[in-house]
């Protein structure tokens, strides 16, 4: 059996770029992204899978990167908040977050953006869909309604 501190080889694609790394078997995916790849846009808020700040997309599905080991992502495609803007332009969702004042401290924001991105890619969510999906994320600053408004407007923009 592999020991927790033993090194294991992993191959992942992160934001369209391939990485081959030897990592500790116990290294969490969030620590891999942040510490090994320098992608610190993904935040760690609770390390027990509740707050949602560390959410990334793995093969287009939202996942809590604090609860996953890096080795579990072997062979998968990962997207983080750093992938959302194209060139020097924020994505429509990011722009809607700014317009609706849907962030204050910004610490939870990457997680909301990634879950909302997956939701928008699935189709045209209703306000109820948005609330149901994003209730798996905590924000302590905004009181949430501006986040709902932002995602709703981004959904409307995508459909138009």
């Amino acid at each position: 059996m592999t020991q927790p501190s033993e090194h294991v080889s992993v191959q992942v694609e992160v934001n369209g770029r391939r990485y081959q790394r030897s990592v500790m078997a116990r290294l969490t995916l969030s620590d891999f992204l942040r510490d090994e790849l320098g992608l610190t846009g993904t935040k760690v808020g609770c390390e027990h899978g509740v707050c949602g700040a560390c959410t990334v997309l793995i093969d287009n599905e939202p996942a809590r990167s604090c609860l996953m080991l890096t080795v579990q992502a072997n062979g998968k495609q990962i997207r983080t908040v750093e992938s959302l803007a194209s060139g020097r332009e924020m994505s429509p969702l990011q722009a809607c977050f700014q317009k609706h004042h849907a962030l204050q401290c910004g610490f939870c924001t990457a997680g909301f953006l990634m879950s909302a991105t997956a939701l928008l890619e699935e189709g045209q969510p209703t306000r109820e869909d948005i609330v149901e999906t994003l209730s798996g994320h905590y924000c302590r600053c905004t009181g949430y309604s501006p986040i709902i408004d932002a995602v709703e407007e981004a959904a409307a923009k995508e459909s138009s």
């Binding site: 846009g41 908040v81 990011q94 977050f97 700014q98 910004g106 990457a110």
Partner: peptide
């Protein structure tokens, strides 16, 4: 501040 924070460039 928002574009910086929204694109993951905040430094906490």
């Amino acid at each position: 501040d928002d574009p910086r924070l929204l694109t993951g460039r905040g430094q906490y």
